[in-house]
């Protein structure tokens, strides 16, 4: 198995521009375009494991929240569509 290696961890996959302000390096994980993070707050050194850990933890946490409190999970768009369909004429 491959363990932790410094050079691997500090070599992120190439960034693909996905919008004017966002890039994607790992599938479904979006990051602000680093060009926008130079004036007020500098980005931190971010090994790959940390990006992946946070993204995975977010998914786990949302799933946990849904499991404990959500009767049903719907997208915001579904909600908007429902509101629109209820509005008269």
């Amino acid at each position: 198995m491959t363990g932790y290696r410094y050079h691997e961890q500090h070599t992120p996959p190439p960034a693909r521009q996905v919008t004017d302000v966002a890039v994607e390096r790992f599938e479904h994980i979006f990051e602000v375009d680093p060009k926008l993070m130079t004036a007020h707050v500098a980005q931190q050194l971010f090994p790959n494991w940390d990006t992946l850990r946070i993204a995975a933890s977010r998914g786990d946490h949302l799933e946990w929240m849904h499991r404990h409190w959500a009767y049903q999970v719907i997208s915001a768009q579904e909600l908007l569509d429902e509101i629109e369909s209820e509005q008269p004429g």
Partner: peptide
């Protein structure tokens, strides 16, 4: 961290 740390690379 959980919702924006990876996005900004600042947690």
């Amino acid at each position: 961290t959980l919702f924006t740390g990876d996005f900004y690379r600042f947690r």
